[in-house]
């Protein structure tokens, strides 16, 4: 069991962009992730006012990363799948206080 060595990065992207998320995260040092299908909700009035349509089908990508890599991965996600890209991704991190099941660096990398 490890304490506070890891953080959970959550990235909400338009459906179909989870591969792009993982490509960007892996390039920045992440090892694996899990994808959940989700349904987004947006302020309808704001959508009309700003003439922007928010695609409701979303994917939620959960990635556990060592705390030291958090900044680099979040930066990569912002650059590759951020709000100004077709993926329209929102990424944030949360503290995680106990982690089990993460293999060490030299073992197979998939979760």
């Amino acid at each position: 069991m490890k304490n506070f060595d890891h953080e959970l990065i959550l990235c909400v992207v338009n459906a179909g962009f989870s591969d792009a998320v993982m490509d960007a995260a892996k390039a920045a040092g992440a090892r694996g992730g899990t994808v959940i299908n989700a349904h987004g909700t947006a302020n309808k009035e704001a959508e009309v006012f700003f003439r922007i349509t928010i695609q409701p089908e979303k994917e939620l990508v959960m990635i556990i990363v060592p705390s030291a890599l958090r900044e680099a991965i979040l930066h990569a996600l912002y650059k590759e799948v951020g709000l100004n890209t077709p993926g329209q991704g929102i990424a944030f991190s949360m503290p995680v206080d106990n982690v089990v099941g993460i293999k060490n660096e030299h073992e197979d990398t998939e979760e």
């Binding site: 503290p95 995680v96 106990n98 089990v100 993460i102 979760e111």
Partner: peptide
Amino acid sequence: RFATIKGGGGIAYTVP
């Protein structure tokens, strides 16, 4: 269980 069950690997973490 992650280490001993065949095909039972996984990860677990807690968020306060």
